[in-house]
Design a binder for these strands. Structure first.
Lengths: 242, 242
DNA sequence: CTAATGATTTGACCTAGGTCAAATACACCG
DNA sequence: CGGTGTATTTGACCTAGGTCAAATCATTAG
């Protein structure tokens, strides 16, 4: 007598985000509906998955890496409206035409679905739709708290808050801990941090040096940050006065 | 032989937004599930339906009037993160604790549901859930384009764009037309416009006088606006220079 | 290890928009 | 219709953060 595993696509079985991504809402044997229409795809740092203005594009689950979502004004001023981390859902399933550009900030890998197909699978799997709804509501909360930051916080509050947020979401470097500080690598350059926060490169740079000089953080190389005094950083993130 | 109408709650039958609100996704005979748990409720200008921090609150459909959604920093700086018009969905069905304050900018009336009950009805009515998902995605798009405005546009672009948007969403005054301009009443005071746009009262006021002086708009009373030159206003809304 | 190249930092300066403080202007009330 | 209280406008001034330009610095290719 042979034991037969429920069919589970091998990619999915090995998937790093099997239970963080939307897929977490599907039992092993339901997963085939999704995996049947999806294919994995690497995306190198700097590459764009979806361009704003593209018609009928794709959706995806982000498996590894970091993506940005961005819009721009007619004359080219850019605003990054969100960052995406492993397990996050990528794309605008109900938009005929994408309003955002999705691009990789680090080398990334995705599980990509054709938009229409994805919407159909959604209709057949209430649990999937429910989870997507919850994720979308959470994304909305995130967008709105970011609106508060953009509209009402000072440059130093913005930068401090941003570092704290990344510290939470990003994998910590080995050797990281309360003593040495929480150490991680920025997936964005100064220009991109500026585009997230509604500032200029120069202002971001000056704020970072101020934090370094005052001992709240340490910087090494272009991209490595250590949060030395989380408590002080937290205070700076929500204090109007400098 | 007597013809029996499918049961349709009398409130719903007379509802002004029966087919703009979420309810549009439900057939007359499904509507009872929702109307059974809902009750209509007036909300006077200035009153608050939900306070940020409230636990387990309510959801609603907005039947008439205009609401604001707002957050604030710890020290009291406020950001209005969205306006709600008749037919819009109100509340945060999946949040244990509200992160936003919902308050009436004009006298309003709502169709209010207990949060948990609403979530259950949602689970039983796929069409309802689908429509809510689409609305939520649309709200997310809106929030993100507002982020572009907050982060990257100048005061004059912000004000011009805001007037155009209200001109689209608000009922036009009688006598309104291409000739006299599109006339409507602002549901917000200067302070609230400032809180939407991430500006100060004074800057909003100065921008409005500038628009009036240059003949693009006309103002009468505190709250009535006439858009005299829509084309020029549109240009101002997307031009970096002045 | 060194040069080449783009990213970042730093400095000097400027301006959009904020702040503070009076005037006005509405709207509502008696 | 005049008085009162709040919302708005206007003015004078100031500053956070933008701009422009010039060093540095980190990285990668050789």
């Amino acid at each position: 007598m042979v034991y037969v595993e429920p069919h589970l696509d091998e990619r999915c079985a090995a998937c790093l985000v099997r239970d963080q991504a939307l897929c977490a809402s599907l039992a092993d044997d339901e997963l085939s509906a999704l995996s049947a229409i999806g294919r994995t795809r690497p995306l190198a740092r700097g590459q764009t998955l979806i361009w704003a203005g593209d018609s009928s594009s794709v959706c995806a689950n982000l498996v590894s890496g970091v993506l940005k979502m961005a819009t721009a004004t007619a004359d080219g001023r850019e605003q990054i409206v969100g960052l995406l981390f492993p397990g996050d859902f990528v794309g605008q399933p109900f938009a005929e035409e994408a309003s955002l550009t999705f691009a990789a900030l680090t080398d990334a890998s995705l599980c990509v679905y054709p938009r229409e197909g994805f919407v159909e699978v959604l209709a057949d799997h209430p649990a999937l739709e429910r989870l997507l709804l919850q994720r979308t509501m959470a994304a909305l909360d995130d967008a709105r708290s970011r609106m508060l930051t953009l509209g009402r916080r000072s440059a130093s509050e913005k930068v401090a808050g941003f570092l704290l947020e990344l510290g939470h979401r990003l994998p910590r470097r080995p050797g990281s801990g309360p003593a040495a500080g929480y150490v991680f690598d920025l997936p964005l350059g100064r220009a991109q941090i500026a585009d997230v926060l509604g500032l200029t490169i120069e202002t971001v740079s000056r704020q970072l040096t101020r934090l370094r000089t005052s001992g709240v953080i340490a910087l090494s190389g272009r991209r490595t940050v250590a949060i030395r005094e989380p408590a002080r950083l937290k205070r700076l993130a929500s204090t109007a006065g400098a």
